[in-house]
Design a protein around this nucleic acid. Structure first.
Length: 346
DNA sequence: AAAGCGGGGGG
DNA sequence: CCCCCAGCTTT
């Protein structure tokens, strides 16, 4: 048996039952693929169910507000996926008469859809012979063929895509694509792969050369920057607070937060008192305020560490755009903020 | 070619 | 602590 048939054979007895494998609906498949970008199945599954329930068709998603879509996406991260998801839904409904593009080339034009996702939708929904190359595929192929080209280099990306294209089962592209990814996720895992029970062991170059742990090769790592965030949690006599939309580019775009002041170091109460707060609503030194957390709450993103303090500021009355504290939960927020709202006793 | 973008989980 | 996850877009 050759490579592709061994994989498909393994898949037939080891696959997990997943909802997006039970459908040919391109909308459902697209939704699942966007959710699963850089996200493990376990983490994405409940979000998939929630989106299918709230937005059963692409028309439902298209007519939703971006805020509502972001709210349902809250906690999943990489929020540009949600914004692009919504943009693409509107595009398909408004410009393509609700008809999903049905081939790799056209799918690739959609916002938020790259080579992997276009290949996945084309094969799963339309049975097109388009090879997927995700993190699992990189790992399986680099190990099995002993390829040491960095998977995140331009050369590596081309090399692996070409190889994947030669390997795909042209009779069963969808099943083959599912099989190699599932194999990478369950058998040929990043750490402690199950080589002893692997059906490909005998012909696996990495196993024979004892290089399984060294593959795949990946170049460089992202360097992490540290930032210091001070959130201003205003509370007035009417039980209102200030909440604002992050409208700038960068992290958490279009999500909501308490007014934020960034500092170049972690501030104690005295330093905060002295800070020039001209950009905030009130002069802090003229009001009653307290520090919620003495030690910084450290929120770690993939390339930023956020050292955070929440300053609670009592005032008599906030401006007209203040919102009732009870309505905070309606807004999409970063996990850092939603965690605070959940724990803080307003 | 490199950087930016989340949050959770494994070892 | 580090790495990885059904990657894509922008610079």
């Amino acid at each position: 048996m050759d490579f592709k048939h061994k994989l498909i054979n393994w898949y037939s007895t080891n696959k997990r039952p997943l909802p997006w494998r039970e459908t040919n609906n391109p909308y459902h498949i697209w939704l699942s693929e966007i959710i699963l970008q850089q996200t493990q199945v376990k983490q994405g599954l409940p979000y998939y169910e929630a989106f299918i329930n709230k937005y059963p068709t692409i028309y439902d998603l298209a007519k939703a507000s971006e805020t509502a879509v972001l709210k349902l996406w809250q906690g999943l991260g990489y929020y540009s996926r949600a914004r692009n998801l919504h943009t693409t839904a509107k595009h398909i409904v408004n410009n393509l008469e609700g008809e999903f593009p049905d081939n790799y080339k056209d799918l690739l034009q959609l916002k938020g859809v790259g080579d992997y996702t276009a290949s996945a939708i084309a094969s799963f929904a339309f049975n097109e012979v388009a090879a997927v190359v995700d993190g699992n595929v990189y790992r399986v192929l680099s190990r099995y063929f002993g390829i040491e080209t960095a998977i995140n280099s331009t050369k590596g990306i081309k090399e692996f895509k070409t190889l994947a294209t030669t390997l795909i089962d042209k009779e069963n592209p969808a099943t083959y694509n599912q099989a190699i990814m599932e194999f990478g996720a369950l058998q040929c895992k990043p750490k402690n792969p199950n080589c002893s029970t692997c059906p490909l062991q005998i012909s696996c170059v990495a196993f024979q050369k004892k290089k399984v742990d060294a593959l795949p090769v990946k170049q460089k790592k992202t360097k992490i920057t540290t930032k210091y965030f001070n959130f201003l949690v205003y509370i007035d006599n009417n039980h209102n607070t200030l909440f604002e939309k992050r409208d700038t580019k960068g992290i958490w775009q279009n999500l909501y937060q308490f007014p934020l002041i960034e500092s170049n170091k972690s501030l104690n109460s005295e330093e905060f008192h002295l800070m020039d707060l001209d950009n905030s609503f009130l002069k802090v030194n003229s009001v009653d305020y307290s520090l919620y957390n003495e030690t910084d709450i450290v929120h770690k993103l993939s390339h930023q560490h956020l050292y955070t303090k929440f300053w609670v500021i009592m005032v008599e009355e906030l401006p007209i755009d203040a919102i009732p504290i009870e309505s905070l939960i309606k807004y999409p927020t970063p996990v850092l903020i939603s965690d605070f709202i959940e724990v803080f006793k307003f």
